[in-house]
C-alpha cells in the first residue's frame, strides 16, 4: 500500500466515560502529531430491552446517555483537529477492526470500562477482543476515579437532549386501511367460530375429511393468521420500498 500522507487515529466511542477519556487523549494526540481523527460508533444488532439497556449503560458507565460522536466532534473542533465521523452496525469489536484496516489507521485509541465479575462475563471486553485480533497498535485508556469525576463535571453541556417521540401517524394511507380490513375479516372468522363453539356445537361436530368441522375450522384460523401475517408484511414492505421509508 502506498504510504499515506497523514497520521490517523481511530477512536471508537459509545459515549461512556472511559470512551470520553479516550476521546480527550486521542484529540490531544492528534493535535500533537498532526493528522486526522476518525471517530467511530458501532450500533449493536442485539435487540435489547429498555431495562437491559439501563443495566448495560450503568455497568459500562454510559450513565449520562451522551452522544459520543457529538462530544468528539466538538472537542476536535475546539482544538482545531481534523475529524471524520463513521457509523457502522454489527459486532462492535469486529466493526472496529474492520474500520481500522479499511481506513489504514496508525493507531486505535479506545476506552475500557473493564467490567468485572458477572457483568464482565455477560458483556465481554471489547478492548480485549480488539487487541487480540488486530495487528494495529491499540492504546487503551482506563480512567481513574479522579478522571471520572472531572469528565462527569465537564460533559454536562454535551448531554444530548432527549428526543421527543414522534407523533403517531395513524390512519394515514392505504397500509392502515388494508390492515384494518384484514383485521375485520379475521375477527369475523374468529367471532363466527366462537359463536358456533358456544351456541351451536352440533355444527362443529360434523364429520368432514376424517376429522370434524371444529378442528378444520380451528386449523384454518391458525393457518390463515400465518397467511395474513405474511401477506400483510409483503404488502407493507412493498409500500415502504416504494415510498422510501425504512
Amino acid at each position: 500500500m502506498a504510504k499515506k500522507e497523514v497520521y490517523r487515529i481511530l477512536l471508537p466511542t459509545d459515549g461512556s466515560i472511559p470512551a470520553l477519556a479516550a476521546t480527550k487523549h486521542a484529540v490531544e494526540l492528534v493535535k500533537k502529531m498532526g493528522g486526522r481523527l476518525i471517530v467511530l460508533t458501532v450500533k449493536e444488532p442485539n435487540p435489547v430491552m429498555p431495562l437491559e439497556r439501563l443495566a448495560e449503560d450503568t455497568v459500562l458507565m454510559r450513565a449520562e446517555r451522551l452522544d459520543g460522536i457529538e462530544y468528539a466532534k466538538r472537542l476536535a473542533d475546539q482544538e482545531n483537529v481534523a475529524v471524520e465521523l463513521q457509523t457502522r452496525e454489527g459486532s462492535v469489536a469486529g466493526e472496529i477492526i474492520k474500520t481500522a484496516e479499511e481506513l489504514d489507521v496508525d493507531m486505535i485509541v479506545m476506552g475500557s470500562s473493564n467490567p468485572k465479575g458477572l457483568s464482565g462475563f455477560f458483556l465481554g471486553h471489547i478492548a480485549d477482543a480488539v487487541i487480540k485480533a488486530t495487528p494495529i497498535s491499540v492504546t487503551v485508556i482506563k480512567p481513574n476515579q479522579k478522571d471520572i469525576l472531572s469528565i462527569k463535571e465537564n460533559v454536562r453541556v454535551f448531554i444530548a437532549p432527549t428526543v421527543e417521540p414522534m407523533a403517531p401517524r395513524v390512519g394515514d394511507g392505504m397500509k392502515f386501511k388494508v390492515g384494518l380490513a384484514l383485521f375485520f375479516a379475521y375477527a369475523l372468522g374468529y367471532v363466527g367460530y366462537t359463536v358456533l363453539g358456544s351456541f351451536n356445537k352440533a355444527i362443529l361436530s360434523i364429520r368432514l375429511m376424517g376429522i370434524n368441522l371444529g378442528l378444520i375450522g380451528g386449523m384454518t384460523l391458525i393457518f390463515s393468521a400465518i397467511l395474513i401475517a405474511v401477506l400483510y408484511n409483503w404488502y407493507a414492505g412493498r409500500l415502504e420500498k416504494r415510498s422510501g421509508v425504512a
Partner: peptide, 22 residues
C-alpha cells in the same frame, strides 16, 4: 449475546438480525 459484541471477524449483521432475533 457476548459474541455479538466481541466477535472479531466481521459478519454481515444488518438490521435483519434485530427483527428476526426479536
Amino acid at each position: 449475546a457476548r459474541r455479538i459484541r466481541t466477535a472479531s471477524h466481521y459478519y454481515v449483521a444488518g438490521g435483519g438480525v434485530k427483527w428476526f432475533v426479536n
